[in-house]
Simulated assay, not measured.
Amino acid sequence: MRRILITAALLASALTLAGCTAGTADSGASTSGGVASAPVGAPEPATDGSKGTSGGGTTVTTPREVVMSGTVTITASDPIGAATRAVTIVETAGGRVDARTQTARTETAAPGATLTLRIPAAVLTATLAKLKTLGAVQTIDLSANDVTSQGQDLDARITALTTSVNRLLALESKSADVDTLIKLESAISDRQGELDSLVSQRKLLSDEVAMATVELRLISPADTPVTAPTTPWDALLAGLAGFGAFFTSVFLVIVYLLPWLLLGSVIALAVLWIVRRRRRRATPAS
């Protein structure tokens, strides 16, 4: 009986410590233990990160994590071929292609391609410079999202839960009571499931930080958006271009209708000749 009471007391103490540890993780504080493992996917300290001062006066550099994403639109004479070259450029840089959509030329649509590229953040600028050589750059829209605090929060929670699970496992190995073991296994299972979820989130966040996401749109010159004139000279040139396009369209319509006009003229002449001949025959009779 005394052994059971002692075991129950140990279990209550372990659960209390685990709860306190989890609470500390939610508030963003880091917890260390003799059996705790390092957070999964923790980034290396960055030279441009924020700095703080520890209690001993030592300057501590906080790792800065940034998620880069954006869209690039390029006009290419051969969008399908340019898409193949873009894949080669990205893979050579150590990246990958997560999605690829291509549209072949049809009677009503020009060819085009859209690629979702994952490019290492360390070589993003150099890779974009190579992608620009695929054609005429129309738009580049890049954004940076600082997720440093989110990463630090995940690291702290992972460390705290790892310590909690290890303590429960150590207590389980020393317990001989069946009821106590059942309660310990239930507590370990709950915390291990939460820990696995946090580790998965941290890995995903680290991947987003390490690999920038860029959507590359390759379009043909026919799909290039028309920009509005910004100066009087540009407006004059646009007007002349429209004037010439109008008469070109009219000329093409006339050329298209020319065979029908010729056929109609022949039919009209034949009808006119028949009518006049009948009139001539009817005149002597009258």
Rank of each mutant, 00 (worst) to 15 (best):
E44Q: 09
A38K: 11
R118H: 13
T108V: 12
G41Y: 03
E44L: 13
R276E: 10
R100K: 07
T231P: 05
N166M: 12
G55S: 08
A228Q: 05
V66Q: 10
V253F: 07
L198E: 00
K132H: 15
S143R: 09
V123D: 09
S13D: 15
L15I: 12
A238P: 00
F251I: 01
V90H: 06
A282P: 04
T103S: 08
V209N: 00
T230C: 08
V165R: 05
A235P: 00
E172P: 04
T163Y: 07
A187R: 02
S13G: 13
R191N: 07
G94V: 06
L142P: 04
I6Q: 11
N145P: 03
A122Y: 11
S173C: 11
A109D: 12
P120R: 13
F251M: 03
A76S: 15
E91N: 13
T62R: 14
L216N: 06
F246N: 01
G193L: 03
D207N: 13
A22N: 05
S54D: 14
S164L: 04
G70A: 12
L134P: 00
I274E: 00
G34A: 15
R3I: 06
V266T: 11
A110F: 03
T127H: 10
L168S: 06
L272T: 13
V178Q: 06
I4R: 14
E185W: 12
V72M: 15
G242D: 15
R64I: 08
K130N: 12
G151Q: 10
T163S: 14
R64N: 06
P79V: 11
T58D: 14
F246I: 03
A14C: 09
V250Q: 08
A156C: 10
Q138P: 04
L134M: 06
T163D: 13
T47W: 10
G56D: 15
A109R: 13
V275S: 08
S77A: 14
I267M: 04
G151I: 04
A14M: 11
I119G: 01
